[in-house]
């Protein structure tokens, strides 16, 4: 090989290595920037007052920055979305992976892809005009923009992720397991729920964790239906999530102010939650591959 050709090869190799490392660079950059901009406010407010403070009044004469209501709302909202979304998503996944006739499967899969593709602002808009008035009339509350509305919107939004990951896990279950169960006299339905589902449990757990990540990170749709007042979470009251706390005040907080810095600290807390969820997700996905 000529020296020139070898030089070109080395240069190209180096260039591709650089492109490969960009992904890692992006993660590091985002992490470093979020930490750097999130720490100052936490230091000024105090970690305990910030995380466990019960009142958020950033615009008051004596501002107080406690984000416990946001943290609890995010946890409750996510838990509620999981409570509604997982059973429906899981059963739909079993149907798609095991029971559906091929033609119907295509139709249901198209519906699921559509749900996945709808922009979150469209979910928010429909929630705002259908769900919010509906809750107000049904439960006779003064304002339908509430935790309940957010939970329902989030439950619908996480459905496609749960369904897709669960279907992949269920379809990967070896056919021998099912054959053995059928041969022992179990009906197909019993086989799917007693054999296939336990065999795919890591993948289904991964689906649930993915749903948690999606729900806790959703901002725009929730912004439009949650009412956006910094209350402690309560089903029929207007609430504010970690994500919406950042979104709603970012545009009018002045750069460099403690308020804006506190918003970045909220983002940092959210980011830490997400990293935790990602770690759990990777754990389950890895176990699913090995199992």
């Amino acid at each position: 090989m000529g020296r020139r050709k070898r030089a070109v090869e080395t240069a190209v190799h180096g260039a591709f290595l650089l492109l490969g490392l960009i992904t890692v660079g992006c993660v590091l950059l985002i992490t470093v920037y979020l930490i750097l901009s999130g720490i100052p406010a936490i230091r000024q407010i105090g970690l305990f007052d910030f995380l466990l403070g019960k009142t958020w009044a950033s615009a008051a004469a004596e501002p107080s920055y406690g984000i416990l209501p946001f943290i609890l709302t995010s946890i409750c909202g996510t838990a509620g979305a999981i409570l509604f979304g997982v059973p429906v998503g899981f059963l739909t996944a079993v149907y798609l992976a095991k029971l559906a006739p091929p033609k119907l499967k295509i139709v249901v899969e198209a519906a699921v892809s559509l749900l996945a593709g709808i922009p979150s602002v469209v979910y928010g808009l429909v929630g705002m005009l259908v769900l919010v008035p509906g809750i107000r009339k049904l439960f006779r509350v003064p304002d339908g923009a509430s935790l309940l509305a957010s939970i329902i919107v989030l439950a619908i939004m996480i459905l496609p992720s749960i369904i897709k990951v669960s279907v992949t896990a269920l379809e990967a279950v070896p056919k021998e397991y099912e054959d053995a169960s059928l041969a022992l006299g179990a009906t197909p339905m019993e086989t799917y729920f007693r054999v296939s589902v336990p065999a795919a449990k890591s993948g289904i757990a991964a689906a649930v964790v993915l749903g948690v990540g999606r729900a806790i990170g959703e901002a725009m749709a929730v912004m439009m239906v949650s009412g956006n007042v910094a209350n402690m979470p309560s089903l029929f009251q207007s609430v504010r999530f970690l994500t919406t706390a950042v979104t709603s005040e970012m545009s009018y907080s002045s750069p460099g102010s403690l308020q804006r810095q506190a918003l970045f600290s909220i983002a940092l807390v959210l980011y830490l939650f997400i990293l935790l969820i990602n770690t759990a997700l990777n754990f389950f996905l890895k176990r699913d591959k090995e199992g």
Binding site: L29, A219, V246, I274
Partner: peptide, 27 residues
């Protein structure tokens, strides 16, 4: 190195868009 890069990509795909918005605003 492969698993580090793949792990980074997984992390990126799990980050919610509002965090991207803030990071983009800073960066």
């Amino acid at each position: 190195l492969v698993s580090v890069i793949e792990y980074a990509a997984e992390t990126l795909s799990g980050i919610p868009s509002i965090i991207y918005g803030l990071a983009g605003m800073l960066l």
